[in-house]
Amino acid sequence: MTTLVIAEPSTEGLKTPTLTTLGAAAKLGGDVHVLVIGQGIASVADATAQVAGVAKVLTADAAELAHGLAENVAPLVVNLVKSGGYSHVLAPSTTFGKNVAPRVAALLDVAQISDITGVESPDTFTRPIYAGNAIATVQSSDPVKVATVRGTAFEAVAATGGSAAVEAVSGAADAGLSTFVSQEVSKSERPELTSARVIVSGGRGMQSGDNFPLLEALADKLGAAVGASRAAVDAGFVPNDYQVGQTGKIVAPELYIAVGISGAIQHLAGMKDSKVIVAINKDEEAPIFQIADYGLVADLFKAVPELTAELGKAG
């Protein structure tokens, strides 16, 4: 039994989603190989070779893989599975993994198991359905199991302690179906939402993007990432990549502070596994209070600056 983990592409270094996906691979048992794709990724491949529990790193370094286009990545993975005899292919549940893994599975004529949160045995997994309102245990009878891994559900493996061999794989080609045009990446000095220890999220109650600096000031005090509800994103207060929820990012920080968010099930789906949840909302009936560990019924425009000041005081 050998698992192939498709690493989250990056030219900057090893990404957290790769490490949590490796956490899921470790639960399967057997050998673990990691496929690192992209262009100019030698240093990322070297860093991946240091990760605990990795037996081999495969690198596919090619111009046509620079942007992780599914049309070019999937055939490469399929060839590796066919020639390498992999029993499992795991990818992180990032927009990259969700885009590529089903394409791989279909080319192998196997089902894909989305967003696994638990490994019961090598063929049986748990995964949330209906926005996390139910947890299904599913069994695959396919010869190869292709799955995406929910990062918040698995421990990241240690980034050091391993010494895997690095092997270049060829065979990538441009499928000629799609081309990368441009990317608008939101720049932020703050931690990434999916790996932040603390998140401060704003909803429609923020009223305008101009009020988000209130949350940013609070986030700065806590070293937190800033997130948002769909309503805040749809209204244009903040960019789309801030969205937490069923159809946005799934997060599980130590502390999640929901400000002016009502607590729709689709939002809760993305944050209810946080360790401690704080809600600030002026409506004491807001559903968010049913899952919040600490609820403060208050006008956010008064409470948030007060909270920021109080944290400043304490040092």
């Binding site: 139910a134 947890i135 599913v138 600490y294 403060l296 019924v297 944290l311």
Partner: peptide, 27 residues
């Protein structure tokens, strides 16, 4: 269907929390 659903269960419930009276109490 290729995947067999063996079981569907309720997710773990969060224990209900408390309301705090002030920002100071929250901190």
């Amino acid at each position: 269907p290729r995947l067999k659903t063996l079981k569907v269960a309720e997710p773990p419930k969060r224990a209900g929390g408390v309301k705090v009276g002030s920002v100071q109490e929250l901190v």
